[in-house]
Every structure is written in structure tokens, then in C-alpha cells.
Design a protein around this nucleic acid. Structure first.
Lengths: 214, 214
DNA sequence: GTGACAATTCTACAAGCGTTGAATTCTCTG
DNA sequence: CAGAGAATTCAACGCTTGTAGAATTGTCAC
């Protein structure tokens, strides 16, 4: 990754004073900005960071490649914008912890799958997953975010020993599940409904987080 | 992927008659062929199929990029040669099936990890894993090979219903485990010894293959 | 030595990449 | 209608990629 550069963007020298900003999107606007963002999510999701090209993204958005640059500055900044999370994984923790402790694993798996299923943020997750694996630097980000913060704090909150090991074990099952089901689309796991998978995988997570693992 | 082309290789019009072939490597040979193969495994393992470049592989082998081409014909053929498996996953099945049925999961996990640990074929697996994720076409290969043939036949051999679903579930745990432990190197799972991981993950596989999942 | 032939390198091409700045079109204001 | 400024496109740069063929070097048999 190169050092992050500033986009010159479509703001003069002093900014957008007196009219709605670029994110407000006033009526009559063609919406190329958002079209590019959507195309970027899809392309990054299908090809990963390195595989996706500005030109392909532009073509998908039916737009000139230079326009992509004009709005987002660089490929890296476009990726960051495309991968912006709409859901905070940690936000579900309190609700899950408050529920039935014996069905905790099942509930987490169900939540995980439900979020993935949503067509809106599926490309985002795909992009993250694919890019994390092919791009060494991006790995550290999700590595710490997902495994340590989310599952880590969950394991700690449960008050069990070996919290970190438990967190990584659970994380490994989730990563693998997403990879097989959504990226690889291997049947029959890919088409199994959320409930079935939750019942099948839930006990695994349950045991990793609260059961006997040594 | 482009159509597979023939390497012009260093065999004349009639082949190597009268002396050991190119795979035999007679003494005095500098061994550039094998050096390229090793470098290719390392590069593909670190960067995936698309990320690895012929030039980087050649540099790692301290060799001219054109030589790589002369020996292996194309990048794709080089990849195929580099990813040639030295161990047949299915070969372990009879031994595992003959063992204690209640420790089956643990034994498989231990076998899986042991094979991965070996420095000799670790880069090969890394290359497979990384490339499968970034290269859509290569996915089909391992998809069918690993999940369907290996775990599939295992689940079928055990005589349980839902063999395919069970196979993909087990496969997802293995993929995730390899990804976290070897590719992402997330601690403490990355440094935990094989026995510890086998005991922790074994029951998961045991249940997916033989237990109650619905 | 001299020829044959494999091993290796040099040079170069065509294609695709991210990126850039100038030129053009569009849209609204006054 | 004129003009300003955003939205968008054109054309091109420098670079890296896989690949190809000619040229060079090394090595052994006769």
C-alpha cells in the first residue's frame, strides 16, 4: 500500500458553503458517486483488492475511469469508502449476552448469517474477506478487529479461561463458514437455510466459547 | 485462465534418448529447475496466483525470467507444477477409519495439522489456499477435490445421513483453521501445539461427521 | 579444437494497470 | 443570454506484467 493521499475531490479551495454537500445528493443529480461506490463493492467483492481494477469498476458504473479518481482520489481510498461498515459487530454483544446462555452459540451463528445474508452488506463482507487474504497489510486490520475485539471481548465477558484461544477457535469456524458458504458457494452448505446452519454450527461455537476445550 | 499451452522445454524434437531425463538431474547440474520450483512455491504461497509474478519468482531463484518460461512454458503451468501434491489426502482414510471411532475427529485434525506443519509442503498448501480464494477458476478444483472427495467419501464411509452437509461443515472448520493458524498467524492459535489444537477442534469434526447436527 | 546441444541471458513487444491534467459537456444562477 | 462551476470525458504518461525469439555462454563427445 502506498501512503494515503488526499483526494482533490469536487470541492474548491474553501469547501461547499451554501449548498448541500456531496453526500447529501440533491435531486436531479445523476448519482454517479453512489453508482461508483456500489460498483466498487461488487468488484472488490468478486475479485479482491488487487484483482479489482479501477477500469472495471468504472465500466460497471458506466462511467469514465477518471471520474472514479476525481471522486475518490485513489484506489485505496475508494476501497476504504467501499468497505465502510454499516453494522457494528460489537453492537450485538449486549443483546446476545442477555439471552439464554445455553443457546448463545446458536444465536451468534444466526446473527452472523443473517447479517451476511442481507444483500446490502454482503458485497462489503465479501470484499473484506477476499482482500484480507490477498493483501497482507489489510489482514492486520480485520485480524484485530474481528477476532480480538469482537470474539475476544465476548470470551472475556463470559468469564472463561483461555479467552484468546477460545476467541480464535470461534473465529476460525466463522471465517471458514463464510468462505465455504458465500465465497466458494459449496453445496449443500451454501443453500441451507439460516436456521439449519445455526443449529448445526451453534454447538461448535458454544463449546469453543464456554465449554471444555482442553 | 488461458488455454493450457505446451512448453517448448529443453527437449529437442525426439526427446532425451541415452541420458537421464530432466527430472533425473545429473551431477554437476546447477539445479536451476528445482530452484525455480521452490521459489515459485514460496512466491505463490505468499502472494497467491495473481499476486506472484514470474519476475519475482525468477529473482528469488537468482535466474533470468525467461528461463522460468523456458522450463515451464507459462505461468499457469508453473503453478500446476508448483502445487503438485506430495501427499494424497485420501491415502490416510483407511488408517483413520480403522482406528478408534470415538477419537476419529481428533485423529483427523492431528493428521491435518501434522501435514501442514511439515515445512516441505506448507508453501504448497499456502499457495493452494491463497490462490483458490483470489482466482475464481482454481476454486472449483480444490472445492471438489478437498470437500467432496476427501470429506465426502469419509462421511459416506461412516454411513451417516446428510453426508454432503456434514462434509462441507467439516471442510469449513478446516479451511478456517488453516486460514487463522497458518495464513493469518493469529495468536494464540498460531503457536498452540498440534495436540492442543487437535483436542480443541477434534470434537467439532467428530460431531460434524458422526454426531447430531439437526 | 570443433561441433552439437542444453542452459542461460538480452532485448523487446503488446497489453493492462493506476493515475493525471486539460478539455468538454452539463446545469443552475443572475 | 451569459457565465460560473461542477460533472464528466479524452488522451496520454510511466510502469509492470506475461511472453517471445534471438543471441550468448557453458558443457560434453569426438
Amino acid at each position: 500500500m502506498r501512503p494515503i493521499a488526499q483526494p482533490h475531490h469536487h470541492a474548491g479551495h474553501s469547501g461547499h458553503t451554501g449548498h448541500p454537500g456531496h453526500t447529501g445528493r440533491r435531486p436531479g443529480d445523476s448519482g454517479a458517486h453512489d453508482a461508483i461506490l456500489l460498483a466498487a463493492r461488487l468488484e472488490f467483492g468478486e475479485s479482491g483488492y488487487d484483482g479489482a481494477t479501477i477500469r472495471a469498476i468504472a465500466a460497471r458504473a458506466v462511467v469514465d475511469p477518471a471520474l472514479v479518481h476525481h471522486y475518490f482520489g485513489s484506489k485505496e481510498q475508494l476501497f476504504e469508502a467501499a468497505v465502510e461498515l454499516s453494522v457494528s459487530p460489537a453492537a450485538f454483544l449486549p443483546a446476545i449476552l442477555a439471552g439464554d446462555r445455553e443457546r448463545l452459540g446458536e444465536q451468534i451463528v444466526e446473527r452472523f448469517l443473517t447479517v451476511w445474508e442481507e444483500p446490502h452488506n454482503r458485497p462489503v463482507f465479501m470484499a473484506m474477506l477476499r482482500s484480507v487474504i490477498s493483501n497482507e497489510q489489510a489482514a492486520d486490520l480485520v485480524r484485530r478487529l474481528l477476532v480480538k475485539e469482537v470474539f475476544g471481548s465476548l470470551a472475556v465477558a463470559l468469564g472463561v479461561p483461555d479467552a484468546e484461544l477460545r476467541a480464535t477457535l470461534a473465529g476460525s469456524q466463522f471465517i471458514g463458514l463464510a468462505l465455504i458458504r458465500y465465497v466458494g458457494r459449496v453445496e449443500p452448505l451454501a443453500s441451507a437455510d439460516v436456521g439449519t446452519v445455526a443449529v448445526a454450527v451453534g454447538p461448535t461455537i458454544q463449546r469453543y466459547l464456554t465449554g471444555e476445550i482442553g
